[in-house]
């Protein structure tokens, strides 16, 4: 697996090489990494990349995955169209 050809976050089109570079700069928590390179901030809400980034960090730190803190899980659980939330106002 070539790091520059391995996609970690599909929504934001981020490769393993790019993510590793951000970690090498000193961003070592998922909260920081997502703010710098937008990992996990796309419409799938991190359903793939969050399952990979903790492994990457655990491998680097030589620890278990359970020791890597997950970022705050923000609502809604999946994308909802505004008109569905807005009710009548969204239909006019």
């Amino acid at each position: 697996m070539e790091p520059q050809n391995t996609i970690i976050c599909r929504c934001e089109d981020l490769t393993l090489a790019e993510v590793e570079e951000v970690i090498a700069e000193g961003y070592t928590t998922i909260e920081e990494i997502k703010r710098i390179c937008r990992l996990g901030m796309g419409p799938c809400r991190g359903s793939t990349c969050l399952q990979l980034i903790d492994r990457i960090l655990a491998r680097q730190r030589n620890c278990g995955r359970e020791e890597i803190k997950m970022p705050t899980n923000r609502p809604p659980l999946e994308g909802i169209k505004m008109k569905e939330l807005a009710g009548d106002a969204g239909e006019k």
Partner: peptide, 19 residues
């Protein structure tokens, strides 16, 4: 979403992904 849909109607088709 009510406010946005009323003032900027095309936005009602967008999905909210995070708050």
């Amino acid at each position: 979403t009510r406010k946005a849909a009323r003032l900027l109607p095309p936005l009602k088709h967008l999905r909210v992904i995070r708050q």
